[in-house]
């Protein structure tokens, strides 16, 4: 299995398209950082809205590495599913298209094993992509902007997290995002089993993610109360939950606290459930599949 995994990873990382994702992420992060470096104050002002009327806002301090990292993650995590689908959707369909799948399947390798290894390789790619993102979004932002307390504007509340209370939240958020994106990888992987070229599953995955995200955000009560709690896209934003703190009776934020950990864990559980469902289905279908490519 380990040998097979190494082979899969080797194949993924020798494909030029794999690095499109890393390049795209680096480019967009640098663009955001550049923009905030030169015009960050306006951005913070925009975020803070009217409260600058009644509060003295130390803009330079708000615009620190942690804040910038949050802005970056908020802006790009919603689009990363495309990059994940690019590799996971190619996993089976790409080999079917290339014709290598039939040679692979004549090797003494079990279909279930191959599928697990291929999915796991997609997950490793996803995690590496996130680590790359963390490296650039977090470390590079800290390098450029320093650290301070993190100010996070939500829909109608502004959260503040103490500097020393921030880093673990990022680690938790990245871990959560890994699971969220692995769900997208599992979906693309499942669709990949049915296709004989990789464009289909990639486009289909993106379409599904987009449609479900719209449904998640539509705020139509009929959907909110029925389908929304079951859409995996509703739960993919759960990483943000790690940046929301509880407040004590005196309205003060309790450092180290999470506003609603059970909700995050529930989201995590639902995402893991989807992963198991998608991957199991993919394996079952692939085990029965006649390879005609």
């Amino acid at each position: 299995m380990w040998q097979l995994l190494k082979i899969e990873l080797f194949k993924i990382f020798r494909k030029p398209r794999t690095f499109i994702s890393f390049g795209a992420i680096a480019a967009i992060i640098l663009i955001i950082q550049l923009g905030l470096k030169f015009d960050g104050k306006s951005y913070v002002e925009l975020m803070m809205g009217d409260i600058s009327d009644s509060f003295e806002i130390p803009y330079a301090m708000v615009l620190n590495g942690y804040f910038v990292a949050f802005v970056i993650l908020n802006a790009i995590l919603i689009h990363v599913p495309l990059l994940v689908a690019l590799v996971a959707g190619d996993s089976i369909a790409g080999e079917a298209n290339m014709g290598t799948l039939r040679l692979v399947m004549t090797k003494p390798v079990s279909r279930t094993g191959l599928m697990l290894v291929k999915y796991f390789a997609s997950v490793i790619y996803t995690v590496l992509l996130l680590l790359w993102m963390a490296l650039l979004a977090l470390l590079l932002s800290i390098f450029f902007f320093g650290t301070n307390d993190t100010i996070i504007p939500r829909n109608d509340v502004i959260e503040q997290i103490q500097k020393a209370d921030t880093l673990w939240r990022y680690i938790a958020a990245f871990a959560f995002a890994s699971v969220a994106l692995s769900t997208v990888a599992a979906l693309a992987f499942l669709l990949s089993v049915f296709a004989e070229n990789s464009i289909g599953p990639i486009v289909a995955t993106m379409s599904i993610v987009i449609v479900l995200t719209i449904l998640s955000e539509l705020k139509i009560p009929m959907y909110d109360n029925t389908v929304k709690p079951y859409l995996f896209t509703s739960h993919m934003l759960g990483w943000k939950g790690f940046f929301y703190s509880r407040i004590g009776p005196d309205h003060m934020v309790i450092p180290g606290s999470i506003e609603n950990l059970p909700a995050i864990l529930r989201s995590l559980g639902i995402l893991l459930g989807y992963i198991v469902m998608f991957v199991t289905t993919a394996i079952l279908v692939f085990r029965k599949k006649d390879i005609l490519s």
Partner: peptide, 25 residues
């Protein structure tokens, strides 16, 4: 003690994670 206006994030800026907590507002 002082008067304040409500805070509203500019529209279209973020996708908040709705964790089911009661909104403070």
């Amino acid at each position: 003690t002082f008067n304040i206006k409500d805070y509203k994030l500019p529209k279209g800026v973020t996708l908040d994670y709705d964790d089911g907590s009661k909104k403070i507002s």
